[in-house]
Structures are given as C-alpha cells and as structure tokens.
C-alpha cells in the first residue's frame, strides 16, 4: 500500500553543494517562479474557483515545501503540508506537479548550456521531487480512504435509528437488507436505547426488509430475550408473507416474537401495555 512510502527514511543530502546552489537560486528567483506557476496553473484552468489571496498562499506553501525539502533533506515539511490537504486535494496535488515542471525548466535555463551541471542538478532535483510527489499521492489516497470509511460508518449509523415516540415506547423501523452486521448493530442500538430511554416496550418494524435468513432470525430472538432481561417487551411488526414462510420453514421459535400485522397495530398494542388510551378530541362545532 501507498502508506509505506511515508516511512522510507531518506539519508541526508548526498550532494550538499548542488542542494545549496538550488536553494539559493530558487530563493532569489522566488517571485518569478511563483508567477510562472500561477501562469501555468491558469493555462490549465485550475485556478478558476480560487481567490487571488488563496492562490498566493497556496503557491507560497508549495514553494516553501520544495525549498524546505531541498534545504534539510528530510520530508517532514511534505508530511506537514499533506496533513492540510482537506477539500482541495486534487488542486494541491496538481499544484505540486506543476511546480515540479516549473522548477525543472528553471534549472535547465539557469545552467546556461552547461549540460553536465544541468544533468546533475536535474537528477538530484528529480529524485527529491519524486519523493515529494509520492508522499503527496499517498496522503491524497489516505484522505479519500478516510472519507469513504466515514461515509460507510454514517450509513451504518443511519440505517438502524431508534425512535422514541412516547414516554417509554421505542420504535425501530428497519429498511433494506438485514445482514448479520446490521443485525448485531440493531441489537446494540436497541439495548442501549432501552437503557437510555427507560423503554418498557419496543416495536421493531421490518416492513422494509425483503429477506431474513435463519442467522438473522435467531439474532432477533436473542435481542428479544436480552430486552426481556432488561425489563422491556419487544413487539415485531411488518413480517411479510415471504419472511413468514421462511421463518416457518426454518423452524424458528416464533413464540417470543409477539408479532403484530403492521406497525400501526404494533404501536396500538404497545400503548395498551403502557396504559395509554387514544381519545379523539371533541369537534370544535360541538358544545
């Protein structure tokens, strides 16, 4: 994986003279180089959605990252910079690449036809630039991976909500595929929800679930038993005919399910257990 690149320790600069020369040269031509970079970036239409201030600060950051790496020979500056990747990941990655092009070209121009020195400087610079790029790419991938993981987690989180609809009454609507991972999460959410809300009755609605296998059915029974130990009653509603057929065919012990046809009758039954009584308020016309 790309992450390993970051751990490669680079020896101190092998060619201190070349490095010192490059640093001095880049520093004295700093403004010009940054302008060239801006021009190149503009030509590729990469700066369209940035303010001039943003561009300047980004450009300076990148330029200084290069300088720092050349000067010190270690890449902590890149690691530091890559931590700030944030939203503009691609822009920064491309920016670093464009800088590499600008600086390489500058080296060739500055050597004024001295092929030997140009080659040596270029080879040296390229090696460092390669490494910077590798680190940046690595960081980009990490940022993306983290994002993907976060999204997966939040989807999982959203997929089993615990809703409190009356005092001491919880409803858990389940939609989608109930696999063993979600079933486990359902159990956890339910039991902790019961504790937090001091729930007496929990209605689990599986109208939106297309399929239940024997593992999940058994897990549901486990959950219902655990809830009972905590002093809560579970009512299961919305078992589709297909699921009912599978459950009977699988020989699942249905006695604990307290099944009701739909979520409405489930909630009505729960209210009865809790002692609620639904009363229609009087019509306004009536005295």
């Amino acid at each position: 994986m790309a992450a390993k690149i970051a751990k490669v320790k680079i020896k101190s600069i092998e060619e201190p003279e070349t490095a010192a020369w490059l640093v001095a040269d880049f520093t004295s031509n700093g403004d010009e180089l940054q302008q060239m970079w801006t021009k190149e970036m503009k030509a590729e239409k990469l700066l369209d959605d940035q303010t001039p201030k943003e561009i300047r600060s980004e450009s300076e950051l990148m330029f200084n990252t290069y300088l720092e790496c050349l000067r010190s020979g270690n890449y902590s500056a890149v690691v530091e910079y890559s931590k700030k990747l944030g939203e503009k990941t691609v822009f920064k990655l491309v920016g670093i690449m464009v800088y590499r092009r600008v600086l390489s070209r500058h080296i060739v121009i500055m050597s004024q036809g001295d092929i030997e020195s140009a080659t040596r400087s270029l080879l040296f610079f390229e090696r460092i630039a390669d490494h910077i790029l590798a680190l940046m790419t690595n960081a980009t991938i990490e940022v993306r991976e983290k994002l993907a993981l976060k999204q997966a987690e939040s989807i999982l989180e959203l997929s089993t909500p615990v809703l409190s609809i009356r005092d001491r009454l919880l409803v858990l609507p389940i939609i989608g595929i109930l696999d063993s991972l979600r079933a486990r999460q359902l159990t956890e959410n339910l039991l902790h929800g019961v504790r937090e809300n001091r729930a007496r009755v929990v209605v689990i609605d599986i109208t939106g679930v297309a399929l239940v296998d024997s593992a999940v059915a058994n897990h549901l029974i486990l959950t219902i038993d655990a809830a009972r130990l905590m002093g809560a009653t579970v009512i299961l509603t919305g078992i589709s005919p297909e699921i009912a057929r599978t459950m009977v065919a699988l020989g699942v012990d249905l006695s604990k399910f307290n099944a009701m046809g739909d979520i409405r009758s489930g909630i009505e039954e729960a209210e009865r257990i809790l002692g609620y009584k639904l009363v229609l308020s009087k019509d306004e016309d009536e005295p």
């Binding site: 001091r198 809830a227 130990l229």
Partner: peptide, 30 residues
Amino acid sequence: IVGIQPDVALAMVRLGLFLKDIITMMDLED
C-alpha cells in the same frame, strides 16, 4: 430482578441464560 445492563443481557442470552419465568424489570422504580 432489576437493572440488568445491556451488555450483560446480551452476554447472558448468548450463553443461553434466559432467566425463564423470573420477572425482570428496568430499575428499582419499575
């Protein structure tokens, strides 16, 4: 019996300890 914690309840049913025909409630109040 009152106050069985969520994780305890889950561990118990996993071990097959259901406390059948014993009354369990949420807390002292219940």
